[in-house]
């Protein structure tokens, strides 16, 4: 590699960092000046939360090729874990949110490992049904959780969760998630993950331990969902089992497919667009046709599938998400 292209790479890296910082400062200023009101602040944070969760599912489905319909369950596990810890300990300092985030992330990861080892032996449709079943079990557990831990509220919902999630927290975790995913995918283990999606027999034949990599992708992806769930819990301060049912898994799946399988850029854009469209239409549309926004969105989806079945980005990436020795 020549030094000129090295310098170019360095300057573009600095540019991206500066852009992100600028983006942060501008939004932060707009928020503290109340130009972006608290309602929209919450929506922007929610877009970030969905981005993190969808990046996790893209790792599982887009990159590793394992069709999971239980993503919302891991999101919920992260949410309830963090809410339980922070509420019980009565933390009110936003910095202490880190404890809840880590706990939610790790518990989601452990449960993904335990559930993943037996069910990742299944292929495509069978795996989808197994993860679907898992999601339903988890939702039923949430519904009845108050029998063991009254603080979780069961089917009445959990209230009074400290509202610690800030825009800063969300942005930091989004950036971390993007960086972790980018570095993972461009490494040798990342190539192994993708080879499992491409052809399991061939990847076994070249020496990839396919069970290990399927599990690795599933666990890391679920950890993303767990940490996103933890942010979600402290964003809305209220949790209800209904927020983690099967339809919520479908929402994340739609973001991944819409943005493009195996595309980090696509997921970033689709998650933000998805949240902003659903909420934005609420503001733009007149009262009488408000319910139609739930028609416009699926319609958009159908149109994209007809005209661009690979999703908006379909396997492509923004330049800054590329790196490494793609073609030495």
């Amino acid at each position: 590699m020549t030094s000129i292209s090295n310098i170019k790479k360095q300057t573009s890296k600095i540019k991206i960092i500066l852009l992100v910082i600028l983006f942060y400062i501008v939004l932060q200023l707009l928020m503290s000046a109340q130009i972006i009101n608290p309602y929209w602040q919450q929506i922007i944070c929610y877009a970030g939360v969905m981005t993190i969760s969808a990046l996790g599912l893209n790792l599982i489905y887009g990159f590793t090729g394992q069709f999971s319909l239980g993503h919302a369950a891991f999101f919920g596990i992260g949410a309830y874990t963090s809410a339980f810890i922070i509420k019980s300990a009565n933390f009110s300092n936003p910095l202490l949110l880190i404890i809840g985030l880590i706990a939610g992330c790790i518990l989601a990861g452990i449960i993904a490992l335990l559930i993943g080892l037996p069910i990742l032996r299944l292929r495509s449709d069978y795996l989808a049904i197994a993860t679907l079943g898992f999601g339903i079990i988890v939702k039923v557990l949430f519904d009845n959780a108050d029998a063991v831990f009254p603080v979780l509220g069961g089917s009445r919902g959990m209230v009074g969760i400290p509202q610690l999630t800030t825009f800063t927290w969300v942005l930091v975790i989004v950036i971390l998630a993007v960086l972790i995913l980018r570095n993972l995918i461009n490494s040798a283990p990342g190539r192994a993950l993708v080879s499992v999606r491409e052809d399991e027999i061939a990847s076994e034949a070249v020496g990839v331990n396919t069970t290990k990599y399927k599990t690795l992708g599933f666990v890391i992806g679920s950890m993303f969902a767990g940490i996103a769930g933890a942010l979600y819990a402290h964003l809305y301060a209220f949790l209800h089992p209904q927020n983690f049912d099967f339809l919520k898994s479908i929402d994340v799946l739609l973001i991944v497919v819409l943005g493009g399988m195996a595309s980090i850029s696509g997921t970033l854009i689709a998650a933000v667009v998805w949240v902003l469209i659903l909420e934005g239409l609420r503001v733009v549309l007149p009262e009488a046709v408000l319910d139609w926004r739930l028609v416009i969105y699926p319609l958009l989806l159908i149109l994209i599938m007809i005209f661009k079945p690979t999703g908006i980005f379909g396997g492509k990436e923004f330049k800054f998400l590329h790196y490494g020795d793609k073609n030495e």
Binding site: R191, A192, V194, E198, A202, S203, V208, K326, N327
Partner: peptide, 13 residues
């Protein structure tokens, strides 16, 4: 083959 990967990535695998 790993159809969506480049020739180079196939060989690296």
């Amino acid at each position: 083959p790993f159809p969506n990967l480049s020739v180079y990535e196939n060989l690296r695998l």
